[in-house]
């Protein structure tokens, strides 16, 4: 347990949140390449609110709120003004990478790291349960509710949704804002749960890994969560494999570091079959 199960669950937590955010956004028809940026902003604001309000829970809440606002900004660009979704997502990533050190400098006097969130010791189960709930609720909403069905139609056949008298734009707005909220909360997991301060650039590519998990999971909530676990597992495996000798040959660390990606490529190529994106993904409405 202590050796594998908890570390995998812990490592997967931010990925699960971000990929669920990505799932709702992309299933509603909007490409979400800005997960990385939302995570980074969430990481900063999670630590910021937790420190300012002396509460871990309010830290997550505050990060989610900021995520909603920035998701809204993203929405205004891609939905209201029909801007290119990939470029806007990239802009979010660059914006987050530039804004967080400035804010960090302004608040904590250092562009590289924030003060320490030093009251997180009892945080063991809460975030894991929250991530589990996030995945289960997403899955249930997605499969069994009219809301989930409409969400899927906004990304699959927006015309059909329109003809049924439902506003496509409204559902896309919900998808975009949800992505902002969930990815930011996922980012806050990094600064408040998995470590204890904001560090410049600490999302370290996890937003893109979450996106990869989403594609690996064929935009399906259950498989996407499995994808997150796979990444978390291979990442830990990679750490444990470092420095081992196989048949008397010591494999260099950089080789071992490619392990998660090699496994992903293998699974994509030989196990998964074709992954199909939502039909109307990336088409402005």
């Amino acid at each position: 347990m202590e050796e594998w199960v908890f570390p995998v669950l812990r490592t997967a937590t931010p990925l699960v949140f971000a990929s669920m955010g990505g799932l709702w956004c992309e299933r509603s028809g909007v490409i979400q390449i800005g997960l990385e940026g939302f995570m980074l902003l969430g990481a900063f604001f999670g630590a910021f609110f937790a420190l300012a309000l002396k509460s871990v829970f309010l830290g997550f809440l505050g990060a989610g709120l900021i995520g909603a606002i920035l998701g809204g900004v993203f929405g205004i660009a891609v939905i209201r003004f029909r801007a290119n979704q990939i470029i806007t997502g990239t802009a979010i990533n660059l914006f987050a990478a530039g804004l967080t050190p400035i804010l960090c400098k302004a608040v904590y006097g250092s562009a590289n790291s924030s003060a320490r969130v030093d009251f997180t010791e009892p945080l063991l189960w809460g975030p894991l349960v929250a991530a589990g709930l996030c995945a289960v609720v997403s899955w249930a909403l997605f499969l069994w509710t009219p809301w989930g069905l409409r969400m899927r139609f906004a990304g699959e056949h927006p015309e059909a949704l329109q003809n049924a008298g439902v506003s496509v734009v409204r559902y896309r707005w919900m998808g975009v804002v949800l992505a902002g909220v969930l990815a930011s909360v996922g980012g806050a997991m990094l600064s408040v749960f998995l470590s204890s301060s904001f560090v410049r650039g600490m999302s370290a590519g996890r937003g893109f890994i979450a996106l990869a998990a989403l594609i690996l999971g064929r935009w399906n909530p259950g498989l996407t969560v499995m994808g997150c676990f796979l990444f978390a597992f291979t990442d830990l495996m990679q750490g444990r494999l470092q420095g081992h000798e196989w048949f008397g040959i010591k494999v260099a660390d950089p080789m071992v570091h490619t392990f998660p990606y090699a496994v992903t490529l293998f699974i994509l190529a030989f196990v998964m079959g074709r992954s199909r994106a939502p039909k109307a993904l990336g088409e402005p409405w």
Binding site: P7, T11, P14, L194, S195, G201, M202, A204, D235, G239
Partner: peptide, 10 residues
């Protein structure tokens, strides 16, 4: 050099 979450797991 900026990945404390991973450093912690290791």
């Amino acid at each position: 050099w900026a990945n404390p979450a991973k450093a912690k797991e290791l």
